[in-house]
Amino acid sequence: MHYITEIKDIGKKCRIIIDDDIVVQLYKGEVRKLGIKADSQFSNESYNEMYNILNKRARERSLFLLKDMDKTEKQIRDKLKLGDYPEDIINNAIEFLKKYGYVDDIRYAKLYISSKQNSKSIKQIKLELYKKGVNKENVSKVLLEMDLSNEEALNKLIEKIIKKYDLNDKTQYNKMCRYLLGKGFSYGEIQEALFKYTNYDTEW
């Protein structure tokens, strides 16, 4: 037997606290159907029915989140946490996604690196992947497989934007350097890469 500690109206749904520490969200119709009332007992049978509802909903929500764009495991977890899904239900949803290949952090890292390798440094790409929840081991593994270098990424980016800048002009040169620094490249790497485009000492 469980106990309903609190029910709070949050629009179409209710935020429910069970046994003082379990927090869930249910639609108002579901609350009525399950006979959930504040400061009252909640049978194991009704609790299991609620659990099954949330388990199915978490899975459907996860698939919806992946509808238009690939995501990391952490991104899915964070979204489900915002919906007050209990941790074990989130784990079930993630297990389902992994089982059928809907979530794969290594695949995500490969796609992300491929899309960013001509516009950002490896350092910046790594930091962004860490923030998205891809662990360091997987990031290192993918980078090793793809055999990328900062020099290659920097040269490709320079070739892409070089026409926008007059490197014979100190202001323009410094502006381009600041742009490349913002992409995660070091000043030394930038100077070395730009030397062939200036053919003179840029230490004004």
Rank of each mutant, 00 (worst) to 15 (best):
I90Q: 00
R61H: 14
D84S: 12
I17W: 05
M50F: 00
D88Q: 14
I89Q: 01
D84C: 09
L63K: 15
E30F: 09
Q41R: 11
S62D: 10
L97I: 03
K81W: 05
C14K: 08
T72G: 05
S62L: 06
R15E: 12
D19N: 00
K81R: 06
D78H: 07
I36A: 07
M69N: 11
I18H: 02
I90P: 08
D70E: 11
I94P: 02
G29L: 11
K28L: 04
E49T: 11
S40C: 08
G83I: 05
M50C: 04
K98A: 05
I89A: 00
S46A: 08
N52S: 15
I76P: 07
Y47E: 06
N55T: 15
D20Y: 09
K74S: 03
L80W: 02
I76E: 03
M50D: 06
F64R: 12
V23A: 07
Y27D: 15
V24N: 04
F96I: 09
Q41K: 10
R61L: 11
K28A: 11
C14G: 07
A38R: 11
K81G: 03
K74D: 01
D39T: 08
A58Q: 03
I17P: 05
C14Y: 08
I18M: 01
S40A: 12
A58P: 06
N91M: 09
I53S: 04
Y27A: 12
V24E: 03
D70L: 09
E60Y: 12
S46E: 10
L34M: 05
N55Q: 14
D78M: 04
L26A: 09
K67F: 08
I17E: 07
F42C: 02
E95R: 14
P86D: 00
